[in-house]
Amino acid sequence: MFRDLNPLLHSELRLAVVSILIGVESADFVFIRQQTGATAGNLSVQLDKLAKAGYIEVEKTFRGKMPCTVCRITAVGRDAFAEYVEALQTYIKK
């Protein structure tokens, strides 16, 4: 039986963001944008959705005089990602 895929993660950009953050302790906005190739506007919207769901933490800070947005995955986000990968496996096994 196919398991339902978490709709929040089953989107190209949001899944890419969570996949990046799962492997690091933190990453800034510029790094995520470079890795995903997304536009700044679209990335901001998707980060906001993930933050509202409690999957990531977003910290607005400064590096020198430049504003800097740092993202980290939360425990809720890790659990959701693990469940998503488990659900994906039910599709692949069929």
Binding site: L5, E12, A16, S19, T36, A38, L88
Partner: peptide
Amino acid sequence: MEDRKLEAAESLELIGRM
């Protein structure tokens, strides 16, 4: 990269690549 739905195989490939 856009906000589009993925096939299961595409999702796994994207996770691995990132």
